[in-house]
Computed example of a mutant assay.
Amino acid sequence: MVPLIAERMDDQFQQAHAQRMQQKKAQVDAAVERSRALQGVVVLLTGHGKGKTTSAFGTLYRALGHGQRAGLVQFITGTQSNGEVTFLLQQGLLGQGAFARVAYHAMATGCTWNSQGWAADKAAADIAWQAAQHMLADASLGLVLLDELTFMLEYGYLDASDVAAAIRARPPAQNVVITGRNAPPVLLALADTVSEIADTRHAFRAGIKAQAGLDF
């Protein structure tokens, strides 16, 4: 008798599960049906947790996989190598010209707590922003990644209203991904998709050294 009861319970479970999945499918299908607009979006990855730039590069690689060209500006990256950019170089995808798969500019001053020179950082930020503006006006770029842009606004190197205006004026089909902590209200209001990554725990605070291939 016990096997018979178990079989009936299993049948009941299977039926209930099938009903739940049918309801879920109907909800997903309805959401897909409502989403008919095709346009470029602004994705903002913020918060104090690890993984914002990593996620953004994953989106850039996804765009490349679909045959798109991309633009990349890294605003506080120093001169040290990092795995994401090194990989693009190894594949011959990174460059400055109109035919590069990934148009690239690095501010190359490093973190502001290293340089400690506001005027020099401001000048470097202006040059990086000029490169970003060219990318944001280039309809041949399907995606533009503005890595650590939020720091430029937080420290007053760039004007938030100017940045927002350039992003709004971009080609209609162009997607933009912005990363960085402490995103200001103007970016939060502008973005179509906002993800905030929380800092629950980090190995570095436990004394574990940053590792190539994992952290940079």
Rank of each mutant, 00 (worst) to 15 (best):
A98W: 00
S115H: 04
Y104F: 15
S55N: 11
A63H: 04
A119V: 15
L60I: 04
H48W: 06
F75P: 03
Q91I: 14
S115R: 13
K50R: 13
Q68N: 05
Q90E: 15
K50S: 09
T79E: 15
Q90P: 00
H105F: 12
T77F: 01
Q68P: 00
V102H: 08
Q68C: 11
A119I: 15
G71Y: 06
F75Y: 08
Q96K: 11
L64D: 02
S81N: 08
L88V: 01
L94W: 07
W118K: 09
Y104D: 01
L94A: 11
W118Q: 07
Q91G: 09
I76H: 02
R62E: 10
H66M: 09
T59D: 03
G51Y: 14
A70I: 06
G47H: 04
Q96M: 09
Y61H: 06
A56S: 06
G97M: 02
T54W: 12
A120G: 09
A119H: 13
R101A: 12
L60W: 01
W113F: 15
Q96R: 11
G71R: 09
Q116D: 07
A100N: 00
T53R: 07
L93R: 10
T79P: 09
G67V: 09
T86W: 12
A119E: 15
A56V: 02
G92H: 13
Q90D: 15
Y61G: 00
W118I: 00
H105Y: 15
L60Q: 04
T109E: 14
G49W: 04
L72D: 00
A98R: 02
T79S: 09
E84S: 11
R62K: 08
G83I: 00
A108C: 02
M107P: 01
Q80W: 14
A70G: 07
G65I: 09
A56W: 00
C111K: 07
A103I: 12
M107W: 02
G58L: 04
A63N: 05
S55V: 15
L88F: 10
K50L: 12
S115P: 00
S81E: 12
N82I: 13
N82T: 13
H105C: 03
G67A: 02
L93P: 10
R69T: 08
L89H: 13
G65D: 08
R62V: 01
L72M: 04
N82C: 10
L88N: 07
A106W: 02
A103E: 06
A100W: 03
F57Y: 12
A120P: 00
T53C: 08
V85L: 04
G117P: 01
S115D: 05
H66L: 06
L94H: 05
Q116H: 09
G92P: 11
A106Q: 08
K52V: 10
M107L: 14
F57D: 02
Q74S: 00
W118D: 06
A103M: 08
L88S: 11
S81K: 08
L72T: 00
Y104V: 03
S81V: 10
W113E: 05
A98Q: 05
T59H: 01
T109F: 05
R62P: 05
T77Q: 15
Y104Q: 02
K50M: 12
A56R: 04
A120R: 13
A63S: 11
A108G: 05
G51I: 13
N114S: 11
G92R: 07
G92F: 14
Q74C: 03
A56L: 04
L93K: 12
F75H: 04
G49E: 03
M107H: 13
G110E: 07
